[in-house]
């Protein structure tokens, strides 16, 4: 599916630019996109290195395992394929908590650490595992209790009630998360059924 989306975006964009007579923007935009990508990856080096160090300490101290055991009732339902007490659980929980609190500089590294652990269980395959699909479904639809960035922007433009959107945000995210979990289960069944 990602192949079609990627190819579709490229082909449609180049055709539209060609027909509208501004084909020259394509080259510039392509290099700008590549430039942004490399900058994002480089900025990841610092926070990744830092959080990997902290997580290694947490693991050595037995805290990751402890955290995994604490939330086991929920995660056992969401991730039946992960053995209980596995370090992947600990980092998944850390990632989701950071998401809920809106700590994006901690959430991304935790998520990547979780993916690392899940990839160990996946036998270093090039194909996503079921647990990874579930994790990403929950991660991308995850609840944010206080959307701080947008509240800041509302405040900047003189809103009388900048937090008025917190209730609507929580409602919409809860809907999204529920559907994400149901969709994950459904697609997993369809996918396995089609493969057999």
């Amino acid at each position: 599916m990602v192949n079609y989306i990627w190819l579709g975006m490229m082909v449609i964009s180049i055709m539209v630019a060609g027909i509208q007579g501004n084909i020259e923007v394509i080259t510039k935009a392509a290099f700008e996109g590549a430039d942004t990508a490399v900058k994002v990856s480089f900025s990841l080096i610092a926070i990744m290195t830092f959080w990997l160090g902290i997580m290694k300490l947490a693991e050595a101290a037995g805290l990751v395992r402890g955290l995994a055991r604490l939330v086991q009732p929920i995660t056992a339902f969401l991730f039946p394929s992960i053995p209980k007490d596995h370090p992947a659980m600990g980092s998944i929980v850390m990632n989701l908590s950071a998401n809920v609190l809106g700590l994006s500089s901690a959430a991304t590294p935790m998520g990547l650490i979780a993916m690392k652990e899940l990839q160990k269980l996946n036998g270093n395959s090039k194909t996503a595992s079921e647990a990874m699909c579930t994790f990403l479904a929950v991660n991308t639809s995850c609840l944010t209790l206080v959307p701080t960035t947008i509240i800041g922007i509302r405040l900047m433009y003189g809103s009388q009630d900048p937090t008025a959107i917190v209730g609507t945000t929580i409602f919409a995210t809860a809907c999204g998360m529920t559907v994400a979990v149901i969709a994950d289960r459904t697609f997993r069944k369809i996918y396995n059924w089609r493969r057999n």
Binding site: M1, V2, I5, T108, G111, L112, M115, K116, L118, Q119, N124, S125, K126, T127, A128, M132, C133, L136, A137, N139, T140, S141, A172, T173, C175, G176, M177, V179, A180, A183, D184, F187, R188, I190, Y191
Partner: peptide
């Protein structure tokens, strides 16, 4: 892209469909 990329996964299976369902719902 970021999460799968960090562990070298290029076949996303149904992860994109999951994400799109959730996005449309929200």
């Amino acid at each position: 892209t970021l999460y799968f990329g960090s562990v070298g996964i290029s076949r996303y299976r149904y992860a994109v469909a999951n994400g799109l369902c959730a996005d449309i719902t929200t």
